[in-house]
Design a protein around this nucleic acid. Structure first.
Lengths: 208, 208
DNA sequence: TTCTTCTACCTTACAGTGTAAGGGCACCGG
DNA sequence: CCGGTGCCCTTACACTGTAAGGTAGAAGAA
């Protein structure tokens, strides 16, 4: 149960104090509200004042939890990346083939990307400066390495796949109709994955 | 020779008229200045006022050539895309194999992406709403089709490659050091291209 | 010539932005 | 009781995009 907190505004009023059930702020609460705003109306709709309003708080209060707006955006990226990690680990099974692992990994990327289209745009541009990003690839490169690739090969395979999925989701989540498409994103995605996996197999014969 | 134009400010001054050699505005002139600003200092550094100042003009004058800032950004995208097209067509030769054509195409994408790192970020997010984007893929899908792929296969191969290169350049041009990298972007790029081309060959056996 | 219209640029104004600087109330450990 | 610390607040400033409308000069018509 969220603790009752006196509304700061009410505390300055003379009459009876008004009590609000406002959720106390925290990085997590703010980030979730921010991601919701972004997903609903685009990145430009996220202003400190409007975010504060959505949380029943003044804009400047947010600066207690985030250094500045950029820091907040980095936090959103981390939130989305973490969601990708969670999604992957939910479907991961031991002893699955590297192809299965890679497919699940990239698919989780896409699923989360479509769940947070505008949040994902942020991820695509600034993944690398967050700490979570450092962990996100371990599972996949690990699977590649366990299947016989050396470190450099695993990284290259990893990069080819993640770059593809980033570009794909970016394209898929833009509202506009692409000029060149079959109209069936699922098919294009799966077929492209087929291409990548077959290419890895063919270029790195030790794998398997 | 650019025509001498009376500086509007000077025209209201009482004394001797001052003549400036300011280049007359046009969509092209504005777009090139805007792209330059973006590449130098990032997208956020592009404000209508500052862009106007760089051109020796008030901010509102730009609205004679662009509906609004978004329209301007679309124009920048189109500029960059056109540069990609030009770069491709400069290296294109008749009778080259589909692999060579694809490699040149994707490489041109990357070269221009690195020449305009911040401009390219715009492209990655809004390529599709521009008219130039409609033409950019014709060469490549044409090469695929000419090599034996049917329409859907050509589109899928095209999409796999363009999504990859978009994601790759986005990663490559972000200042931060990625967590998983060999440190050799050129090698990673070429090897990833190998993977894609081998994968296309393997998944679409009719090609050749 | 003079009158009108058009083009290209301008000024002003407004609502909205991020955030620096600092204030004050509620709670806590002493 | 008292001083600190945490959490939220107000105020203020420089900046943004852009709506509304003005104006000086060029071009065309009479």
């Amino acid at each position: 149960m969220p603790p009752l907190r006196r509304s700061p505004h009410a505390s300055t009023a003379r009459k009876a104090p008004e009590w609000t059930a406002r959720k106390p702020l925290s990085r997590g609460v703010i980030l979730r509200a921010a991601l919701e705003m972004i997903d609903a109306n685009g990145i430009d709709s996220l202003s400190m004042r409007q975010l504060g309003q959505a949380l029943g708080v003044e804009a400047m209060s947010l600066y207690h939890y985030f250094k500045n707006r950029d820091d907040l955006l980095d936090g959103i990226v981390e939130t989305v990346v973490q969601e990708i990690i969670d999604t992957v680990s939910k479907t991961n099974r031991p002893n699955q083939s590297w192809k299965t692992a890679a497919r699940k990994f990239i698919t989780a990327y896409r699923v989360v990307g479509n769940r947070h289209p505008n949040g994902f745009r942020l991820v695509a541009q600034r993944t690398l400066r967050t700490a979570a990003a450092k962990r996100v690839g371990e599972a996949l490169t690990g699977a590649f390495a366990a299947s016989g690739l050396n470190a450099d090969q695993a990284i290259i395979a990893y990069r080819a796949m993640t770059c593809f999925v980033a570009g794909f989701v970016l394209l898929e989540t833009s509202r506009m109709k692409p000029a060149y498409t079959t109209g069936n994103f699922n098919l294009e995605f799966e077929k492209s994955l087929d291409i990548l996996l077959a290419g890895i197999e063919s270029c790195f014969p030790r794998i398997g």
